[in-house]
Simulated assay, not measured.
Amino acid sequence: MTSNLKDRSSGALPRPAVGTAVLAEFRRTPLLALIVFVPVVILLEQTVPEAHTWLFLLSVAAIVPLAALLSRATEAVAARTGDTIGGLLNATLGNLTELVISFAALQAGQYLLVKASLAGAIVTNTLFMLGGAFLLGGFKHHLQEFNRVSARFQACLLFLATIAILVPSVISEVDRAPAAAFSQKLSLGLAILLIAVYGLGMLFSLRTHRELFAAVGHADEDEKPWPLSVSIVVLIVVTLLVALVSEIFVGSVQIAAEHLGMTPAFVGFIIVALVGGAAEMTTAFSAARANRLDLSVGIALGSAAQIALFVAPVLVLVSYFVGPEPMSLQFWPGAVAMMLVATMAATLLSNGGRAAWYMGVMALATYAIFGMTLFLLPPATPL
């Protein structure tokens, strides 16, 4: 009798627990309220496919909560699989929103949008997210500390990836005759090299020298991860929804950008990067306010390193099977310059292991300079 009651009680617990967890998640992440735009944009695309401006705006609003759910589910899965597998999952799924959007643009042959979104995500994470964390955290805390060894390591990975992007871009300017064929072959080799370097970097930071990357005396938040089964279901369902909404976004972006006075380069560099990283930014800013700057710096620089060393090379490899033609790592000179400056700025800002609010002002001002430049003077030729 006791066992039957126990079985009944154990079987009845998950339903209210799940409902409570859902309500708590919406209170913790207000961005999830935008989830109502997901069915709206899908329905609008079926009924009024020529309303490109509205489809663009609604798809942007719909991607934000989906990105938040993806980030939360990824954290929950990684928390239950250990550091090594969790690190691999974060590398694969941490920037899944940007990857899916770029994959949809890749299929459509919009290589300028793909490259602009990749460069924009790197610059946005290293300047806007890191600067915002320094600024918001500095408003509440006079001086904050973080693990400078971990920050330097991520900045070095970013610098390496930027050099790998710089080389094919410079070579194409020096010798134009074999530029296309040579750039594609070089990009393929560099993509494989960068993925290998990133894999070894995870081995170094998560296994052989993980004691160097410990947080500087800040405890983790007391937050229970989702059940593994719930996390996996959320990952699958939300990934499908992101893919569907991303197709709508890519299909409407060109005409909508013209109507709104924006170029695909600006949309990719600024809009896609901010939308795709909205969930991570929320976590980074909240952590900085809670005096957990190690987490904020790790999210900002770690996410940028993932994009530079993992997402971009994967898209180069995938383009051989999906895109109209293979995509290279050749970016327009302005994008390369912005990535180099952003990497140097992140290195300088994180070098001391301490942060104050004015450091955030400097990073955000640099990002604003890039945004205004791209909006007013976009690149003339798509690469």
Rank of each mutant, 00 (worst) to 15 (best):
R8W: 10
G11L: 14
L13D: 08
V18I: 13
V18H: 11
V22R: 11
F26A: 07
P30K: 14
V36K: 05
I42C: 08
L44N: 08
A51D: 12
L55F: 04
S59H: 11
A61C: 11
L66K: 12
A68Y: 05
L69D: 02
L69C: 10
L70N: 14
R72A: 12
E75M: 09
A76Y: 05
A76M: 07
A78C: 08
D83G: 08
I85Y: 13
G87D: 15
L89I: 15
L89F: 14
L89Y: 11
A91V: 14
T92F: 13
N95W: 09
T97Q: 06
T97N: 05
G109I: 00
Q110H: 05
V114F: 09
A116V: 00
L118V: 13
N125Q: 13
T126Q: 10
L130F: 01
A133K: 07
A133F: 08
F134T: 04
K140W: 05
H141P: 03
H142T: 10
E145R: 05
R152G: 11
Q154E: 09
A161M: 06
A164N: 09
V167S: 04
I171F: 11
E173V: 11
A177E: 15
S183C: 08
V197G: 03
G199Y: 04
S205R: 12
T208S: 07
R210D: 02
F213N: 11
F213K: 10
F213P: 06
D220W: 04
K224C: 01
K224Y: 04
V230E: 04
V233T: 13
V233Q: 08
V237W: 07
T239H: 00
L240M: 13
V242A: 03
V242M: 11
A243F: 15
L244N: 08
S246N: 06
E247G: 05
F249D: 10
F249M: 10
G251S: 06
E258S: 05
E258F: 00
T263F: 00
V272T: 02
A278L: 11
A279G: 15
A284L: 07
S286E: 14
A288V: 04
D294W: 12
D294V: 07
D294L: 06
L301V: 11
G302K: 12
Q306V: 09
L309H: 02
F310M: 10
L315I: 00
L317H: 01
V322P: 03
S328Y: 02
V341P: 05
A342S: 15
A342D: 00
A345G: 02
A346I: 02
T347R: 03
L349E: 02
S350G: 08
V361W: 08
V361R: 04
M362K: 08
P379D: 15
A380K: 12
